[in-house]
């Protein structure tokens, strides 16, 4: 069964490169590049593997900014067939993101499955899979560590805190993936070059008035640790043992 797969890709500021000002605690984001969010790479890999096994095509959607071309090219190089960038992303606001993306998906009538990461690394809200499934009125299979398609159904395996489950739902449905699902491929140079020449559709969002929370502050948490570092293992072990002993009741 050939599958029409949609993968949702998030582009984020490279959070590993963000430093916070030691005096003010303010995050310094100026000049820091954007990258494809790690879990989005797992989602792309899962989508492309599903296509390779069942046939069909993968459409990537980014709700981002005009800087998102590089992210989409990376997705192309990994095996995504078509790409749509919706511009106008203006910060973390899951309800608005879900609205924009689900309005776009409604115009792609014959899709079978929407794949996305379960909780992205920057804001960590984790509510987008439910929001999108809710707005499209389709079932949701969450936290997949493997995905299989079989006649009109999607089956996933997932690891919850205390149990492992295999669950299924009829298509179309939403599947959220965890980082354990796969090791995203590193595309060969030829594919990267070919990806650079492939067209990307850029569209305007159907915006609505959904307000995000008003940010009162966004600062590094204060760390009041002593930071007493020993390079002498004997001295260090002695001091550490003393500190531990004072806390053993």
């Amino acid at each position: 069964m050939a599958l029409n797969i949609i993968v949702l890709i998030k582009q984020i500021i490279d959070i590993d490169q963000i430093r916070t000002d030691p005096n003010t605690g303010e995050p310094v984001t100026q000049g820091i590049p954007f990258r494809v969010e790690n879990l989005s790479k797992n989602a792309i890999e899962a989508a492309v593997q599903l296509k390779e096994k069942n046939g069909g095509k993968v459409t990537g959607i980014i709700f981002g900014t005009d800087k998102a071309n590089a992210a989409m090219k990376e997705a192309y190089a990994m095996g995504v067939d078509d790409g749509i960038i919706i511009t106008g992303y203006a910060g973390n606001n899951p309800s608005l993101t879900a609205h924009v993306i689900s309005e776009k998906i409604k115009s792609i009538s014959d899709y079978n499955v929407i794949i996305l990461g379960n909780q992205s690394a920057d804001s960590y809200t984790g509510v987008l899979p439910g929001l999108i499934a809710g707005k499209l009125s389709v079932p949701i299979l969450g936290n997949a560590v493997s995905i299989e398609a079989e006649d009109g159904k999607i089956k996933i395996r997932r690891a919850l805190e205390d149990k492992d489950q295999i669950i299924s739902a009829p298509t179309p449905c939403v599947v959220s993936v965890t980082q354990e699902i796969n090791q995203p491929r590193l595309p060969p140079v030829l594919q990267i070059m070919a990806a650079g020449r492939k067209p990307i559709k850029t569209e305007q969002p159907s915006l609505v008035d959904i307000h995000a929370g008003k940010v009162l502050s966004n600062l590094a948490p204060k760390s009041e640790r002593r930071r007493q570092i020993f390079e002498d293992a004997s001295k260090g072990s002695e001091e550490v043992a003393k500190a531990i002993r004072s806390e053993i009741k």
């Binding site: 899951p94 379960n118 984790g126 509510v127 899979p129 439910g130 929001l131 999108i132 809710g134």
Partner: peptide, 17 residues
């Protein structure tokens, strides 16, 4: 998290997550 998303989509209330 999924339940919160579905309730939000159905009621139109936003989520503080």
């Amino acid at each position: 998290r999924e339940v919160a998303g579905l309730i939000s989509a159905s009621t139109g209330n936003t989520i503080a997550s």
